[in-house]
Design a protein around this nucleic acid. Structure first.
Length: 406
DNA sequence: AAGAACTCCAACCGCGACTCG
DNA sequence: GCGAGTCGCGGTTGGAGTTCT
C-alpha cells in the first residue's frame, strides 16, 4: 500500500510550468463534472450535440475543464452560496494556479470572495481558498504520511473524539485570543473562551492551539483541522483523506461491529463486491489481522490515554532517556509532551510564560521537525516494520491489555 | 489483453459560526 | 438584536489510476 501511495502522491507544482505532470492537471477532454447538477444533467440531456466543451458559452481560462450549466437548466434545491454563473469548476489548470499563487503572494487573501475577481479567475472564492490551502500554499508538505504522523492522527482522534473536554480542560491565555498568528486560525482564536486560570496551562504553543480547537470542535467527529495543526504542512483535507482511506479502515477491521456496519453500508450503497472483497482482504491479510488485534482500544482510549499520559509525563519530566525509550519507539517526544498536557494534572506555570520569547518563538514547524526522526520507524521502513510499529505503539498505549488473551 | 472492480484524493457542497454594519 | 456577507469545517463525490479476474 505504501508503495502504491508513493506512486499516487505527486509532488507540488514547483513553478507552474506547462511541463507539470499531466496527471495533476486536467487533460483536454477529460475533465469531470463535479457538481451533482452537472452529473444529473448529463443523464437528462438528450442533446447529442452537447459536449463538455460547449455546454456553456463561457469558456475556461485554458479552454478546458467542466463548466457550470446555466442555472435555469437544472434543479436548484438550495440557492448557491455565491454567484456561480460562468465560473469554472473542477480541476485547476496551471494557468489558474499560477495566477492565484501570484496574486496571493502579492496581495494576500483578505477577502476570498472578492479574490477571484481581483485576480482575474473564473472561480468562486471557496474554490480559490481550497486550492490555496490544500495545494498552492508554500509550506505544504507532500509525500506519504510517516508512521509518526499516522500514529499522531490516531492518537488525536482517539483523544479528541472521546474525551476532549476531559483531557484538555484549560482555556488559552489572553494572548492566544488576541494573537491571530498563522499557527492559530483566526476562526479558532476568536472563539476561544476567556482565560480564567492563569496559574495552570500547558507549556507548548501547539497545545495552546489544541486548547482552542478542542473547545470549539463539535461534540463528535474526527477533527481533522485540529489534527492538521499538529502536523505542519499537512492539510485538513489530506488528513481527512488519510483518515478515511487508511486509518479508518484499519480501525474498522479491528472492530467487528463497526466492520460489519461498514460492510452493511457498502452493501446498501450497491457495492456488494467491494464489501465482499474487503472482507476477504481482512480475513486473509496478516496486516489487517495485526490491526484486528491492536486497535479496539483506540475507540475507547480515553481512560487508557490518561494512564499513558501519566507515564509519559513521568518520563518527560525526568528527562530519563531510558524511560523515554521504554515508553516505546512509536511515541515521539512531542507526542508524549502533548499527552502530558492532556492529562488532568498540569504543572503550575506563571502567566508570563505565554509572553516569553521561548514560547512565542515556538512554532508548529519546530514541533514538526521534532516529530521527524525522534521516534518511530523511518519513513522508508518496510511494511512489516510499520505494522510492528503500530502494534507496539498501541500496545504501549495500554490499549491491548484486555486483549492479551487473544 | 481486456474489462471489471476497487482505491485514492482533489475538489465540491452544505451548513454552522463568526463579523460587521 | 438582526440580517447579510463571509469564512471554514466535515462530509461527499467522481474521475484517474491501480489491481484483480
Amino acid at each position: 500500500m505504501a508503495q502504491r501511495l508513493q506512486i499516487l502522491r505527486f509532488p507540488p507544482p514547483p513553478a507552474f510550468s506547462s511541463s507539470s505532470p499531466s496527471h495533476k492537471y486536467p487533460t483536454p477532454g477529460t475533465a469531470r463534472p463535479r457538481h451533482p447538477c452537472l452529473a444529473r444533467r448529463s443523464t437528462l440531456s438528450t442533446d447529442p450535440t452537447r459536449t463538455p466543451s460547449n455546454q456553456h458559452p463561457i469558456l475556461s481560462l485554458s479552454g478546458r475543464g467542466p463548466l457550470l450549466p446555466p442555472l435555469g437548466s437544472i434543479d436548484m434545491g438550495r440557492a448557491p452560496c455565491c454567484e456561480k454563473e460562468g465560473l469554472r469548476r473542477g480541476a485547476w489548470s496551471p494557468e489558474e494556479d499560477q495566477r492565484l499563487a501570484a496574486y496571493i503572494q502579492q496581495h494576500g487573501h483578505p477577502n476570498w470572495r472578492a479574490l477571484p475577481r481581483q485576480a482575474g479567475l473564473l472561480r468562486c472564492g471557496k474554490s480559490c481558498r481550497l486550492r490555496w490551502i490544500n495545494y498552492l500554499r508554500p509550506d505544504i508538505k507532500r509525500g506519504n504520511f510517516s508512521a509518526d504522523e499516522e500514529a499522531l492522527i490516531v492518537r488525536l482522534h482517539a483523544e479528541l473524539g472521546n474525551s476532549r473536554l476531559e483531557t484538555i480542560t484549560y482555556p488559552p491565555p489572553p494572548q492566544a485570543r488576541e494573537d491571530k498568528s498563522p499557527e492559530i486560525p483566526s476562526r479558532l482564536a476568536s472563539r476561544a473562551v476567556p482565560y480564567e486560570n492563569p496559574g495552570q496551562c500547558c507549556g507548548n504553543i501547539a497545545i495552546r492551539f489544541t486548547t482552542c480547537a478542542a473547545q470549539t470542535a463539535p461534540a463528535h467527529g474526527p477533527h481533522h483541522t485540529h489534527c492538521s495543526a499538529h502536523l505542519p504542512g499537512r492539510t485538513d483535507n489530506e488528513i481527512k483523506n488519510v483518515w478515511h482511506t487508511h486509518i479508518k479502515k484499519r480501525l474498522e477491521a479491528a472492530d467487528p461491529e463497526s466492520n460489519a456496519r461498514a460492510k452493511q453500508q457498502k452493501q446498501r450503497k450497491g457495492k456488494p463486491a467491494a464489501a465482499k472483497k474487503a472482507t476477504a482482504a481482512v480475513d486473509s491479510s496478516s496486516e489487517q489481522q495485526t490491526f484486528t488485534t491492536a486497535s479496539p482500544g483506540l475507540s475507547s482510549s480515553v481512560s487508557s490515554g490518561v494512564t499513558t499520559a501519566t507515564e509519559s509525563t513521568a518520563a518527560v519530566s525526568s528527562g530519563d532517556d531510558a524511560s523515554l525509550h521504554q515508553l516505546g519507539t512509536g511515541a515521539t517526544k512531542a507526542e508524549m509532551e502533548m499527552e502530558s498536557f492532556s492529562s488532568a494534572e498540569f504543572p503550575p506555570i506563571d502567566e508570563s510564560f505565554w509572553s516569553s520569547p521561548d514560547v512565542m518563538d515556538m512554532g508548529l514547524g519546530a514541533m514538526g521537525e521534532e516529530l521527524v526522526g525522534l521516534a518511530g520507524p523511518p519513513s522508508s521502513s518496510t511494511r512489516d516494520e510499520d505494522m510492528e510499529f503500530w502494534l507496539k505503539m498501541l500496545l504501549e498505549a495500554g490499549d491491548m491489555r484486555d486483549l492479551s488473551v487473544l
